[in-house]
Design a protein around this nucleic acid. Structure first.
Lengths: 149, 149
DNA sequence: GTATACTCTACTATTATAATCAGGATTATA
DNA sequence: TATAATCCTGATTATAATAGTAGAGTATAC
């Protein structure tokens, strides 16, 4: 698994929407989000469109428009998003679905290891939701305040 | 972490040398290895040269020359090789050494997760040596024989 | 009806990957 | 000492992925 810039942007975008999830529908505009996250606007546009296709976010057009999370942060895990944005999730082609290469014996002994790596990875990201991340964020904010006093 | 073809070839090459490690120095020629592993000869040449620079293999020139493992298979772990061939080993840039990007708060909450992923991955590959792989290979060979009877 | 914000398609630059090619240097062995 | 098999070096190529840009179009609120 390798998280590209695009994937990283997608995760940060969802976290940003999670932060703004609390009260009544107040969509976050691409411009504002791009400013906060330091992402090129036109690139973030594409990212959000894909996330919409993936069912992670919704959009409102026109004035006062923008993007919203389509589910509460507690129901979105890192795993969900990673599977969507970081394909392939596997560390090597031979562990992916439908792989037909590798005619010989050698494939097998490595394959088992890559599968274990893949499973360990997914176990971690599946165990983290965006509300977990929000909590960590708040904790960090408080710690930082202590230092600032 | 993502294992490329080149990396995959490197691992298979070392396993091939591990298989031929037993008796007195009988170097394995690139041609023979390339045939067994189904790898383009000139590409395998490059791979073996890099592995030599990495200290994993040695070479003998001239007639009856070829490549040899420079240490016994039990002293070479998958982790050693993966660190050498699969850079970056980390799942995302921000976990790599010397990273200076990501000015804002968001980096941190994801970073922890990527670090856990990275550690879990390395724990697995560090725990597997090429003599472990040889054992698995022999086990598989025996299983296959049973089916062939 | 106009400003604002999302939607969609296409394009470009850069880099990595996976080879391939051509030739030179080295050395064990007959 | 010739020679054959091998290692070694550097350049070149084709393809794909990645990161980002550009611009026209569509919906909505005021």
């Amino acid at each position: 698994m390798r998280i590209t810039y695009k994937g990283d942007y997608a995760l940060k975008a969802i976290l940003d929407l999670a932060i703004h999830y609390h009260d009544k529908p107040a969509p976050v505009s691409i411009q504002h989000m791009a400013g906060r996250l330091d992402i090129p606007i036109k690139f973030l546009e594409q990212v959000l469109l894909e996330l919409k296709k993936g069912g992670f976010v919704e959009s409102r057009r026109g004035k006062v428009g923008g993007y919203l999370l389509s589910r509460p942060p507690s129901e979105i895990s890192l795993g969900h998003v990673v599977r969507f944005i970081a394909s392939p999730v596997e560390p090597i082609a031979c562990v992916e679905d439908g792989y037909k290469g590798c005619r010989d014996i050698y494939k097998c002994v490595f394959r088992e290891v890559w599968q274990r790596v893949s499973e360990a990875t997914m176990r971690i990201v599946d165990g983290v939701t965006f509300s977990d991340l929000l909590e960590n964020l708040n904790r960090k904010d408080k710690e930082q305040m202590v230092y600032q006093i």
